[in-house]
Design a protein around this nucleic acid. Structure first.
Length: 277
DNA sequence: CATATGTCCTGAGAGC
DNA sequence: TGCTCTCAGGACATAT
């Protein structure tokens, strides 16, 4: 489940393709219909082939490949999408191959479940479809004041609100449980009932957890889907405090067991003793 | 407007 | 053993 740390790891991993030229693009035939690829493949090729990759960016949970003609290839991994410089795990779930002229011959988009997307956008399209109205400030860049201003009046539970990418971009279901545990905030606590001090703890914990997870190159869960661009596992799953650990002792207080609840159809893990409502 | 729910997708694992 | 069923959660469409 690539969230900010995994996508940032992908971004850093594909930096070696900066300066390379797109030689050809292979849309793998059979699963093509199943993932969202826009525009049509001939138009996509016409606008991207022959272009140099000038820069690699990240917008929330998306990787951006900027081209010299000011178009951008927007890669959205969603649940199981991977960006690979190494040989993909199998042929079956290969979606797009970018053949490059440069030090690395191929950049692959591989996606087992096919919920991801690969889109080529003009500057204008990018500004509209993924502009500040649609994607909030990045979780690593947002200030405490910005975070506070954006969510302080919301009646939603803090866990649910932090997953809203329009409010703040990059936090997903795994890291929200982790950061709320570090901040000692109950996931069901309503935003409009949090004190300034609690917001401050959330902000600090968010930065700590995300930065630490990036250092470990993200989390590879037992389903094993997330891999870095060289098809290697991340390491942060060994550091998880609560996520995916129901009934295990809380790593902070030891006296309480991690509880699993469901909020907005998603699992939340927390320590009922350390994170009181 | 804000918030809640439904939808897509595949394969791992549970349960029988 | 081998089958069926549930569940995992990204973003977005639709409903309340």
């Amino acid at each position: 489940m690539p969230e900010l740390p995994e996508v940032e790891t992908m971004r850093r991993g594909v930096l070696p393709v900066v300066g390379s030229c797109v030689k050809s693009i292979h849309f793998v035939a059979s699963p093509y219909k199943k993932i969202r690829i826009t525009p049509r493949r001939d138009v996509f090729r016409h606008r991207a082939v022959g272009q140099r990759i000038t820069e690699i960016g990240r917008l929330g949970k998306r990787v951006l490949l900027h081209l010299e003609n000011r178009h951008t290839i927007v890669i959205e991994p969603r649940m199981t999408g991977l960006l690979l410089l190494a040989e993909p795990p199998d042929e079956q779930h290969l979606r797009v191959g970018f053949q490059l002229r440069g030090p690395v011959p191929w950049l692959w988009f591989w996606d087992r479940r096919g919920l991801g997307s690969v889109r080529l956008m003009s500057e204008r399209q990018l500004a509209i479809e993924l502009g500040p109205q649609r994607v909030g400030p990045d979780a690593l860049a947002i200030t405490l004041d910005q975070l506070h201003a954006r969510l302080r009046d919301s009646r939603r539970a803090i866990k649910v609100a932090l997953l809203d990418q329009r409010a703040i971009a990059g936090v997903g279901n795994l890291y929200v449980s982790e950061l709320l545990h570090v901040a000692r905030i109950h996931p069901e606590k309503r935003c409009d009932r949090l004190t300034r001090n609690q917001w401050s703890r959330i902000h600090a914990a968010m930065l700590d957890v995300l930065r630490e997870a990036i250092r470990y190159e993200g989390s590879t869960l037992s389903d094993g889907t997330y891999r870095n661009v060289l098809n290697q596992e991340g390491g942060y799953q060994h550091c998880h405090r609560v996520y995916g650990r129901p009934e295990k002792p809380c790593p902070r207080c030891q006296n309480s067991r991690v509880k699993r609840i469901v909020q907005a159809q998603r699992s939340t893990f927390f320590c009922p003793r350390c994170q009181r409502k």
